[in-house]
């Protein structure tokens, strides 16, 4: 086990390092702006006084390295800064609207996670089951139809899927609501109902990917000599699958699932906008439109962190499920 532990710790450290470097990239990208935030916030016509105040408030008069570390230590303390919208409000009106970016993001993040969870609960079992079926009955009519359908669904933009679903499930047959106006303290059943359409859209996109990858992984596996050996030992098809294929299929399937959940991150942005779902994706896009850089920066970091984390999980789980690594020589 010592061997595996070392590898896992190595991967974890590597993931952490990647995250750190990513934070530097994001920070530098934002700070490469001409002029600085102050002008961006207040616009061209701002008085020098106001600009100076904001610069001092934001610490923009400090050198770049100092600013990076104070930003980083802020993140570690859970302080993601203050959004421009809030700052503007405060400087211009002198109000005490001291709502940090973190307070804006937190509830939306939990909404998004809820959506991702619902999607995963629907998509993962369907995709894995269909993928395994397509692999078992490869080159059959079912496999061919599945191939064309999934290929088409991967190729379609998320918003196309979303509108087709809206057309059929909300407009023509009003089964589900097309707007996902979720609020705090909403009853669970209603919350599910309102999130179902965006979740289905994401499911369609993710399932196609996941199913194709599962199929490829299983076909690859079924071609192994040890599967042929099991069949030549007279084992029943069921036993070949359960006893011989499955333990080895775990690693690739886990990998496929984690990779596709990571893929969800991108899909979530568009889908949340279509359904006006109050998640982090929508906040991100809104902030991009009004150039609220602290929010954009924070969202970007969260998305990247989630993405790295999922890839890392995939990596570690597949290490753990590899018998060669679990039982070293």
């Amino acid at each position: 086990m010592g061997n595996v532990l070392t590898i896992v710790v190595q991967r974890l450290l590597l993931g952490l390092l990647t995250l750190l470097v990513v934070s530097i990239v994001i920070f530098l990208a934002v700070n490469a702006l001409p002029g600085d935030f102050a002008e961006a916030i207040l616009g061209q016509g701002a008085t020098p006084d106001a600009i100076a105040t904001i610069r001092r408030d934001l610490g923009l008069d400090q050198p770049l390295v100092v600013r990076y570390f104070s930003w980083l230590s802020g993140i570690l303390r859970g302080d993601l800064g203050i959004s421009f919208a809030q700052l503007n409000f405060r400087t211009n009106l002198g109000g005490a609207g001291d709502v940090g970016v973190i307070d804006q993001i937190a509830p939306r993040l939990s909404n998004t996670l809820f959506l991702a969870l619902v999607t995963a609960m629907i998509a993962v079992p369907i995709a894995v089951a269909l993928g395994v079926l397509a692999a078992l009955f490869r080159n059959s009519v079912f496999d061919r139809v599945a191939n064309i359908t999934t290929l088409s669904s991967i190729s379609s933009p998320e918003f196309f899927m979303a509108y087709v679903l809206i057309l059929f499930l909300a407009v023509l047959n009003p089964i589900l609501p097309s707007l996902s106006n979720i609020y705090d303290g909403m009853p669970f059943a209603e919350r599910i109902e309102k999130s179902l359409l965006p979740a289905l859209t994401l499911t369609l996109v993710v399932t196609a990917h996941m199913m194709r990858m599962t199929r490829a992984a299983i076909i690859n596996l079924l071609a192994s000599p040890y599967i042929e050996m099991a069949r030549l030992k007279g084992m029943s098809p069921m036993r070949v699958i359960v006893k011989h294929a499955l333990p080895n299929a775990l690693a690739p399937i886990i990998n496929v699932i984690a990779l596709n959940l990571a893929y969800l991150i991108t899909g979530v942005v568009v889908v949340e906008v279509v359904f006006v779902y109050p998640g982090i994706g929508q906040l991100f896009v809104d902030s991009v439109k009004i150039r609220d850089i602290p929010v954009v920066q924070a969202c970007c970091l969260i998305f990247a962190a989630a993405y790295i984390l999922l890839n890392l999980t995939a990596d570690i789980l597949s290490i753990l499920s590899n018998p060669r690594l679990r039982h070293p020589k």
Binding site: V25, V296, C300, F303
Partner: peptide, 14 residues
Amino acid sequence: AIPSLIFALLLMTI
């Protein structure tokens, strides 16, 4: 390590 659409949106903002 940064999802491409997210990175694109960040850079487009800038």
